[in-house]
């Protein structure tokens, strides 16, 4: 391996910029799922929600030509997936794991089905593409050598994703709503006994989370690829769940973990591109191994919401 070539600034810039780009859907999805999980619902359908977001944004943008409409569609789709989850989990009290898995399969089937019937040209299947979002260079800042190219020449949604982190932190830790959501996830009885609306809070949290996860999906199509490919969420929804665990349910740690995982991904892409003989699959598997190691340390699990995945019954 030629160290010099590798350290060439252009490559490094590429890797770092890619890191931020790859982080975008992961951040959006994990911030959304974080809110859901902090309210006590473990939405395993995160993967399917990302996929639905990707598909609906692609479909709507293709049919309307508008990126904004596509983005909105993804948000709505994510919200609907969340609605299904919370209705079945909270009102009907079905098992959250089962609902989540079925949601994933539902999304997988529905997106392929819908794609197949929506894109036909004269009876034959077509594979259209869309015009993806442009990079938005921040004036002045993007001109700074190196830093400008890495940080300030990204797409709009990327900036949004990173700004979302302090916003979610603020929501959870500095607002009344955030306090109520976190309390719901820790000990629903406490929330109920203080006269707050448990169900309303629950529905809101899961819907809100779902919308952000749907938005994450939109980045995969509108922000990256110009096509829609079956199952293009490719494990990102699951990775968001892993990231939340590794980040101990705290926004800034989640940011850190996301950056690490995204960096590894960007790195392995570069390595693949350069043609180096290195088991890049190992790098790809690292996040998952890491998550297991984190779960093994008891300190790490200390911040999981106390009532995660358990439905609340007032009579209990």
């Amino acid at each position: 391996m030629n160290i010099n070539a590798f350290l060439q600034t252009a490559i490094l810039i590429n890797i770092l910029a890619s890191t931020l780009r790859i982080s975008t859907p992961l951040l959006l999805a994990s911030m959304g799922e974080l809110v859901t999980e902090r309210s006590g619902v473990w939405n395993m359908g995160c993967e399917g929600t990302v996929l639905m977001g990707a598909f609906t944004s692609f479909l709507v943008t293709n049919k309307t030509g508008s990126l904004i409409m596509g983005t909105l569609a993804a948000i709505v789709a994510g919200g609907l997936m969340g609605l299904i989850m919370v209705t079945l989990a909270t009102t009907l009290k079905l098992d959250q794991t089962v609902i989540g898995m079925t949601l994933n399969l539902f999304a997988s089937g529905l997106t392929v089905f819908w794609y197949t019937i929506a894109f036909k040209v004269g009876g034959a299947q077509s594979y259209p593409s869309i015009a993806t979002a442009e990079v938005v260079k921040i004036p002045f800042l993007s001109k700074i050598p190196f830093i400008g190219e890495v940080f300030f020449s990204q797409k709009l949604l990327t900036y949004f994703a990173f700004l979302l982190v302090p916003a979610i932190w603020y929501l959870l830790y500095r607002t009344w709503l955030g306090l109520e959501i976190r309390s719901l996830g820790e000990y629903p009885r406490a929330v109920d006994m203080r006269g707050l609306h448990v169900n309303r809070l629950q529905y809101f949290s899961v819907l809100f989370g779902g919308m952000l996860v749907g938005l994450a999906g939109s980045f995969l199509t509108l922000g990256s690829s110009d096509l829609f490919i079956p199952n293009m969420s490719a494990g990102r929804g699951w990775l968001a769940i892993v990231i939340i665990i590794a980040g101990n349910w705290q926004p800034y740690r989640i940011l850190l973990v996301t950056l690490i995982f995204a960096f590894l991904d960007a790195l392995q892409l570069q390595i693949q591109g350069v043609g180096v003989q290195f088991p890049y699959q190992f790098l790809l598997a690292l996040p998952y191994i890491f998550a297991i190691l984190v779960m093994m340390s008891s300190r790490a699990r200390s911040n999981a919401p106390g009532w995660l995945s358990t439905p609340y019954n007032r009579e209990d």
């Binding site: 089937g109 392929v112 089905f113 197949t116």
Partner: peptide
């Protein structure tokens, strides 16, 4: 499309 069946199963 065959994917109909996947939707149906879910």
């Amino acid at each position: 499309p065959t994917s109909l069946v996947d939707v149906l199963q879910a």
